[in-house]
């Protein structure tokens, strides 16, 4: 168990290292980093100052070490556009992102779990085909297009919902649905397969042998067990949602970290872009690590394997 956790921890560190090296190298290799790091329209003197400040004349590996030490201190630089510390800026945008992701998660689970269960219980019937089509549509429609279609219909034609911004529950509805759409399909598929697994298990057989009504077999013995992998995945997906919300936040002008990344790109505010990507990567690596450890705690088979 300990060995397994240490191994996973090592892998997570390698991931983080790889992420930082990739970002660092890409910035150095693709042209003059001083130009990237300087504000658009900076003078030659400004560029020289930046080269001095970041030690761009020194060897690459010393540059990397100083890059890394800055990051570890939480120093991601200053935003050109907002004139504030990038890390603070990121943190200030995070609550909005989490709110959106939570709402999208709620939507995706409310849609995905019931449809997944219905599809599993009525295998190969009309419901199952319907569920498959729904899942395929979810995987085939870009989330931002779902958002655009909803704006067109609910905001422009019907005038029911605001097309952008934040503040009220109404502002949240469409971004949450367009972000949650794909995940509803994913959660539906997983619920279905997990439910099918559980329905074939010995304890469900025993529940039927006990003479329990089928409704009780499913609602009590199958449902709870089938939900565990779905909720675990939902935990990871919440973090992934924060990070893939860029397009949806852009479409609806939702003030989260995704929108921050988009602004960073649009305004050539490079420290913002770099910080958003790095912090997003850290979040995902950490969550993957936590899930792996959690699984090892739950499932003894993994422990021995490690």
């Amino acid at each position: 168990m300990k060995k397994y956790i240490v191994k996973r921890l090592g892998l997570a560190l390698i991931s983080l290292l790889l992420l930082s090296i990739t970002i660092f190298l890409l910035m150095r290799i693709t042209g003059d980093p001083a130009v990237l790091l300087a504000e658009p329209g900076a003078s030659a003197a400004d560029l020289d100052a930046i080269r001095q400040q970041f030690g761009l004349d020194r060897p690459l590996w010393t540059q990397y070490v100083s890059f890394l030490t800055h990051l570890l201190r939480g120093d991601f630089g200053q935003s050109f556009y907002y004139r504030t510390d990038v890390f603070e800026l990121y943190l200030s945008r995070l609550p909005a992102s989490l709110l959106l992701a939570s709402a999208a998660m709620a939507f995706s689970l409310l849609v995905g779990i019931p449809t997944g269960i219905i599809a599993a219980v009525r295998v190969n019937q009309w419901w199952d085909s319907g569920g498959k089509i729904f899942a395929l549509l979810g995987l085939s429609m870009p989330s931002f297009w779902v958002g655009l279609l909803m704006i067109l219909f609910f905001s422009v034609y019907l005038g029911w919902l605001p097309s952008s911004g934040s503040g009220t529950v109404f502002h949240l509805v469409m971004p949450a649905i367009s972000l949650g759409w794909l995940f509803a399909a994913v959660h539906m598929r997983l619920t279905r397969s997990s439910m099918l697994d559980v329905l074939g298990s010995e304890y469900v057989k025993l529940a039927r042998l006990k003479g329990l009504p089928e409704a009780l077999v499913i609602s009590k013995h199958a449902f709870k067990n089938a939900l565990i992998p779905v909720l675990t995945l939902a935990g990871i997906n919440l973090v992934i949602m924060v990070n893939v919300a860029v397009v949806v936040e852009t479409v609806f002008a939702w003030p989260g970290v995704g929108r921050l990344l988009y602004e960073g790109i649009a305004f050539r505010d490079f420290p913002v872009v770099q910080a958003t990507v790095l912090l997003g990567g850290v979040m995902i690596v950490v969550v993957n690590l936590l899930v792996d450890i959690l699984y090892a705690v739950i499932d003894p088979r993994i422990r021995y394997e490690g």
Binding site: E202, Y203, K205, L206, L212, K220
Partner: peptide, 20 residues
């Protein structure tokens, strides 16, 4: 089922629901 005719499955170790 379960009242007049009961059955014990092949794998009694796996027949208990872990969550109850």
């Amino acid at each position: 089922r379960g009242k007049r005719i009961a059955m014990i499955l092949q794998d009694p170790m796996m027949s208990l629901n872990p969550l109850f």
